[in-house]
Structure formats: C-alpha cells, structure tokens
C-alpha cells in the first residue's frame, strides 16, 4: 500500500508550524500507524531531515503515550482504538492521511506531534486517590464489593490518560478523564470517605486548565477505552452533593 502523509511539523512551542507532505510507500496492511511513522522517519533520517517527534511507548494501547489527530479524529478512525492500535488495513491504498497534534491550552506543544499533558497529572494530584498509607490497609476481603460495582469501577478505571477526550472535545474539556478517575474511586466502598472532597478538588483543578462540558459526547467515541459519558453525569451529581452535603452525616447510610 502507498500513502501520502500530511504531518504537522513545528520545531518548538513558539515556532511557526505547518503541514509537510511525505510519501510512505510499500506499506503492509498489518503495520500499525506508528510503524508507518517509523518508516517515514527512517526515510527522513536518510534524507538528512529531522524525524517527526511523536510520543509512544507501549504500542499496545495501554500506556496512553501515543495520540494525535488522524484525519480529524483523535486517535484516528475507529472506536476504542489508540493511535498505536490503528492498523493500516483501516485505510484504503492511496489515501492521504492528515496528522496533527492535539490542541488544547492545557496541552502546550513540545515539538511536532508531541504535546505536554501534565495538566492531567495535576487533576489526579488534587484528589484522584484514596488516602491510605502503606501498611494502613485492612484485610482485602473485609469489605465485599458487589460484582457490578467492581465492574463499573473498572470500566471507569480503564482510562489510559491519553487526553484524546480533551483533544476531541469541541470545548477542550477534560470531563471524561476527570470523571473517569473520580468515578472509579467514588463508586467503590473504599472511596467513600473522601468522595465529596475528591469531587470538589478534582473538578475545581480541572477547571483551572480545561474547558467545560456541554455534553457533545464526542469524547466517548474518541476514547480508546470507550469510557462512557455516564461518568460525567455521575461527576456532576457528586459535585453538587459535595457543595451541599452535610458531611458530618457521611457515616450514616
């Protein structure tokens, strides 16, 4: 297969960027999209041009490093797919593929397709955890967790922190990421003690960096883990409760 790639090149955060066109020939349909970028990069190095910088690591859709706009979609076409899991058999021979970095004020560009997603860490830092220091844990089976609850928490916990939700959202909102982490913990019995403090802190930190959600629902289709916007609704509910709950009564059912 042969492809024409239009790739966004930008040497630094403040430099001017533009699309450059590259040819990628002799591509097998079994190759992943990142392997095509590898091929382009090898050719670029041969030709004495700096290779395209892009983040990647696990190449199996779990580390959340990779991520770029491919043909106007975060992580490219297909649902539940990270860029590294995008295989060339999804495209047609001869296609032109346009690749652009993720754009968000919270994700300043580093170089070419690499962006800085550390704002997501700030959200987790603000409350995306259960405060239990090493050694302070009770016996694991002491608190039963209904299977449906464990499954629902796992659905949310699958988030890989790639930021595709932000990239895809017309508002640049990080609602799906934040809500996924928050609900993973808020759904579990272990997470109840800090549930409302967590909701408050995570939402308010999120809002310092990201846009707000108007329920476009684009994020859940971009999300490589297919996390549902249900979690956003739960988060909105928890946030309201956080602001109005008499927390002295939290110990009661």
């Amino acid at each position: 297969m042969d492809f024409t790639l239009k790739v966004w090149r930008q040497s630094g955060p403040d430099a001017r960027g533009q699309f450059e066109t590259y040819q990628a020939g002799g591509i097998s349909e079994d190759m992943s999209f990142l392997e095509v970028l590898d091929v382009v990069n090898e050719n670029l190095i041969d030709a004495g041009t700096e290779p395209i910088a892009f983040d990647h690591d696990c190449r199996e859709g779990i580390c959340g490093s990779c991520g770029m706009m491919v043909n106007g979609q975060a992580h490219g076409p297909g649902t539940r797919t990270a860029t590294c899991q995008l295989h060339m058999r999804t495209f047609k021979d001869g296609d032109t593929i346009t690749v652009e970095p993720w754009r968000s004020a919270a994700f300043p560009l580093v170089r070419d397709l690499t962006v800085n997603r550390s704002a997501l860490d700030r959200i987790v830092e603000s409350g995306g955890f259960i405060s239990v220091s090493t050694g302070a844990a009770p016996e694991a089976n002491l608190i039963p967790v209904p299977k449906v609850v464990a499954e629902a928490a796992m659905d949310a916990a699958e988030c890989i922190g790639c930021g595709a939700c932000v990239a895809a959202c017309p508002n640049g909102a990080a609602q799906l990421f934040t809500a996924a982490k928050m609900q993973h913990l808020n759904l579990l019995p272990q997470g109840q003690s800090e549930r409302y403090q967590r909701a408050e802190r995570m939402v308010e930190t999120m809002e310092e960096y990201f846009g707000s959600c108007t329920n476009h629902g684009e994020c859940q289709y971009a999300c490589p883990k297919g996390i549902s916007i249900d979690v956003i609704a739960y988060m909105n509910r928890d946030y309201m409760a956080a602001k109005s709950k008499n927390r002295k009564l939290l110990g009661q059912k």
Partner: peptide
C-alpha cells in the same frame, strides 16, 4: 461565560478539518 472559557481552552484551532462522530449540528450550534 462558559463559551468564553471554552474558547480560551483551545486558543489554537485545528488546522485540518475535524471529523465529528457524536457532536452534532445541534450541540455545536447551541
């Protein structure tokens, strides 16, 4: 006020055409 926040959240627009899946005409024209 939310609209202006959202615009600040993406100061540099995408240079290539977006291909929306879920965001529909109604949601984008609120």
């Amino acid at each position: 006020s939310l609209w202006t926040t959202n615009r600040r959240a993406r100061p540099v627009a995408y240079a290539s055409r977006r291909d929306y899946i879920a965001a529909n005409y109604a949601s984008r024209t609120m």
